[in-house]
Computed example of a mutant assay.
Amino acid sequence: MRWLNHTYCALDAHGQTIEYRDGKRWAWAWSVINPLFCWIGIGLYMLTDLEVLLWYPLLQGYVIFPLLDWWIGEDTNNPPEAVVPQLEQDRYYRWLTYWVVPVHYLAFIGAAWWLATHEVSVWGYLAVSMSVGLAAGLGINTGHELGHKTRSLDRWLAKCVLAVPFYGHFWIEHNRGHHRHVSTPEDVASSRMGESIYRFALREMPGALVRGWQLEAQRLAKQGRAPWSIHNEILHSYAISIVLQGGILVWLGWQMLPFLLIHNVLAWWQLTSANYIEHYGLLRAKRDNGRYEPCAPHHSWNSNHKLTNQILFHLQRHSDHHANMARAYQSLRDFPDLPRLPNGYYGMFLVAYFPQLWFKVMDPRLLSLGHIQGDLSKVNIDPASRAALLQRYGSAPVGS
């Protein structure tokens, strides 16, 4: 089939013809069906009548996927720059991000219906709700990819998919806030050395909401418009959320309210988990004029682990994404000497949920980076942990 085996041809800088075939082309489809993995537990339960199997999707995400990432290994291949324009114009990759949007709705609505029409224990109810919440967290990732595009259709689909977990402010805050302030003390979505994921969540979740609304209000004010109007792009997504989740309650009853709450909170927690590990402790230097240096690849933690990159639209090549945010997922690059995570995102999420283990794994890795070399003044440090980190790692001057 041509769409699976397309070859790109171009001239390199020396005038030589090069050919490139994306060896992962077919595998990107895993990102489309990934939201349906939450249904595996339901399927296993229906086949065996063993309620414990409803927990399988969480086992898969937090145990099986990290083990597979470790076993399968990493992929450091980059597409030749000469073919990148063709690669980014190939509609196949764009259509994958379109197709996954209705899949998120199918997974969410279908699971809500199943839960409302089947008798399960409280633990079974919790397992399904959490599994679907994990899938909705992937929806925020889909919204992330679509929200970075300039096409009107892409941006509307971003609003639609972010409506599933009721997180419509994300792409506004992410594009205009996080990308501007990333890896600085001013960024609510960049974690600091010595800051646990739980304290980070208390700062990041409300901070992102507030900053998203502030940024949208500022945009509308420049146009002479009120924030509470049909022109507010956050409200577009929120309106879809109200119709979607309100419709679930009207259709299936108020017993679905705990499902919706668990689903939404766990989806938000997935995003917080990703934000926590993506920039932990990394700091952009402040220049004499008071401005921070431009974001570079070494200001984000990178992961080349094959499996989770294929099911997350290459989100884990985060270093190139922040240095070149308009670059499409299929052409994101690896670079030498990047800050590297020892596992894919799901494995690192699990480590982060145990703060002392996270600090033991990541603090030495952070301080050993080539551009830091143990200098705490080059690290984004949690103010509450400053004294303890100074005592443990040395008395070098510490930056903010």
Rank of each mutant, 00 (worst) to 15 (best):
M348K: 05
K378V: 04
D49R: 13
N343R: 06
C160I: 15
A13V: 07
L249F: 08
Y292D: 10
L115D: 10
W113V: 11
P297G: 14
V210F: 08
P80Q: 09
Y346C: 05
A328W: 02
R284C: 11
L307Y: 04
L115N: 08
H118Q: 12
L307C: 00
P165R: 13
K306D: 05
Q373M: 05
E81M: 10
Q223I: 00
W71N: 00
H314C: 13
G41P: 06
A13Y: 00
H279E: 03
T97F: 03
R211G: 00
A111H: 02
M256C: 13
W30E: 01
N324A: 04
G137P: 09
I381L: 11
V32Y: 01
Q89Y: 03
N141C: 03
L209N: 06
L58M: 14
M1L: 11
S121G: 14
W171G: 00
D90F: 01
L96P: 05
Q89A: 15
G139Y: 08
G394N: 08
W123Q: 08
N275T: 11
S229F: 01
S303K: 02
G143R: 02
Y20N: 00
N324I: 05
L332K: 07
A384D: 15
A29P: 00
G399H: 00
H314E: 15
L50R: 14
L261M: 15
W28E: 09
P364H: 12
V379H: 01
Y56P: 01
R365W: 06
Q270S: 09
L162D: 13
R219M: 07
K360I: 01
T308H: 07
L50K: 13
Q214T: 12
V250G: 02
R25K: 12
E195Y: 03
H174D: 08
G399I: 01
E204H: 11
I40N: 04
W113L: 11
F108M: 12
H104G: 09
N289C: 06
G124S: 06
L350H: 05
R225F: 05
S129K: 03
G110R: 06
F354R: 05
A201H: 03
L67A: 15
H314V: 05
L47S: 13
P336N: 07
W113D: 11
T117Q: 13
L220Q: 05
R21Y: 06
L369H: 00
L106R: 00
V128P: 03
L138W: 14
S241G: 04
Q255K: 14
L11G: 01
